[in-house]
Simulated scan of single mutants.
Amino acid sequence: MAGPYLGEKRETGGRPRVIAHRGASAMQPEHTLAAYTTAFDLGVDGIECDVRLTADHHLVCVHDRRANRTSNGKGVISTLELAHLEGLDWASWKELDDGSANEQADSDPGRGRILTLNRLLDSLTSQRQELLTLIETKHPTRYGGLVERQLVTALREFGLTTGDLPQLPHVRVMSFSLMALVRMRGLAPQVPLVHLVAQSAPRLSWDGSLPTGINIVGLDMRIVRRSSAIVRAHQRRGHEVYVWTVNEPEDVERCVELGVDVMISDRPSDVMALLG
């Protein structure tokens, strides 16, 4: 694909921002503190995480509904208490890029500990940078709106519900659930929202429209590969466009050519190298 030098500045204000998907998840086990501290060290523009509620109503950073894939335990996250989840190993399952198993968890037990949202926010705020912080609430869940209520409580504790401030993370809350976004708008109206759109969405809107009060769309990279029309449609309406998961060089180039605002990647180091 012919295209510009990936490091050149766009007229809209520069290169797309690079966001570490579940932390630097190609380099470290996803959603562990090590994945995020690695991302900070890489100099990323921000991070992304998913949150779920435990049985005793703690927000933890886990993508899947069940613990099976990313820990040595089993069971639905929402039915397990935090103390049980903290007893599991969330790191050694990961095969690193060199083909080895992740053995560092044995020498550092904290490395494989489940990451709570509060612990992640504490680490983020200690960076004293305006890191773009994308938090996705996962639905459907047995707890419904309690997820957003607990999220707002956590954000408020760190002073992150009153808009973007200097030397603090710039939070965006994302969801595929419109109801979840409506709840967030009511609970914390100054926190910007991202409406996520998957390739499998049954009524994918191609005209660039978004629900009232939402000005950011999150698009599956597979949609962007299929057609640039939806990106252009949102840009014409003045919306920001976030794209996930951008790992391949041709996808990076496509996103740069389209002038998207954010690229969410498992491999932020590789993406930043391509951007120069």
Rank of each mutant, 00 (worst) to 15 (best):
Q150V: 01
S71H: 03
M1H: 14
M272K: 06
R225H: 08
P166N: 10
A188S: 06
V18I: 02
V197K: 08
P189A: 06
V241G: 00
Q28D: 07
T245A: 06
H21D: 04
V256G: 10
P140S: 01
R203N: 14
S100R: 07
R237V: 03
P140E: 02
N215W: 11
V197Q: 07
A26M: 08
A83H: 06
V256D: 15
L59I: 00
Q199W: 11
A24S: 10
H139R: 09
L6Y: 12
E136R: 11
G213L: 13
V171H: 09
G208F: 01
D261H: 03
D64I: 06
A105R: 13
L155Y: 05
S228A: 10
H170Q: 13
Y5E: 15
G159H: 03
G7P: 15
P166R: 11
P4S: 13
R65C: 11
E30S: 04
P140T: 01
E157L: 07
L33F: 09
D266Y: 04
V18D: 01
L42D: 00
S71R: 03
T137A: 06
L131F: 09
L134N: 14
L165R: 13
G144M: 00
D164H: 14
L187F: 04
E48A: 10
W93Y: 05
V191Y: 09
H170Y: 10
L210A: 08
L274I: 13
E257I: 12
L88E: 01
L160C: 06
R203S: 14
P268N: 01
L210M: 08
H21I: 04
G75E: 04
P29C: 04
S205Q: 11
R17A: 06
V173T: 09
L165N: 15
E136C: 13
R22K: 06
R142D: 05
Q235H: 04
G163S: 14
P211I: 13
M179Q: 15
K94Y: 05
T153Q: 04
C49W: 10
G144A: 01
H170N: 11
S269W: 09
H21E: 05
G7I: 14
E130M: 13
A105H: 08
E257N: 12
P109G: 07
H84S: 11
R226A: 11
V62Y: 06
Q104I: 12
P211F: 12
P202C: 04
Q127H: 06
S228R: 08
L117H: 06
P169C: 11
V44W: 02
T212L: 15
S100L: 04
R69L: 04
K74D: 15
T137V: 12
A35I: 07
R225P: 05
S107W: 13
G7M: 12
L151F: 07
